[in-house]
Amino acid sequence: MAMDEAGGAPGAAKKFLYVNRKAPYGTIYALESLEVVLIGAAFEQDVQLAFLDDGVYQIVKNQSTDAIGAKNFSPTYKALGDYEVTKLYVEAEALEERGLTADDLMEITFEDEDDDWAEKPSINIVSRADMAKIMSEQDVILSF
């Protein structure tokens, strides 16, 4: 959808980007963002999530919080598909700087209603330049 259309017709879906830049558990940002995403999903907008800087740690696999007394909310990212949040952009440079690769991330998928419910990956690895471009194409950015 073109930006001017999105801004124009009332009721038209707007492009929302949640920018996640903090690792989980050290601060409350990651969990707060996830909760807002889940609540906001009810408004049926075009929702996308960006993971950059330490935010990539939010979706790494094998998180185990038993010994720090915090709830491990990483499994909840796998429910995003049920909430029709199916576009998760992860910055390649942010992974690389931290010694991570796409294989270190959880498998997050959605079932494509328009393709006979085929299971498809929600995670898209994008370059820093593409991430900047994605940000520049939004109607609304929510920063965490």
Partner: peptide, 8 residues
């Protein structure tokens, strides 16, 4: 501006 990103 069309949008704001806060680098918190």
């Amino acid at each position: 501006c069309d949008r704001t990103q806060s680098w918190l």
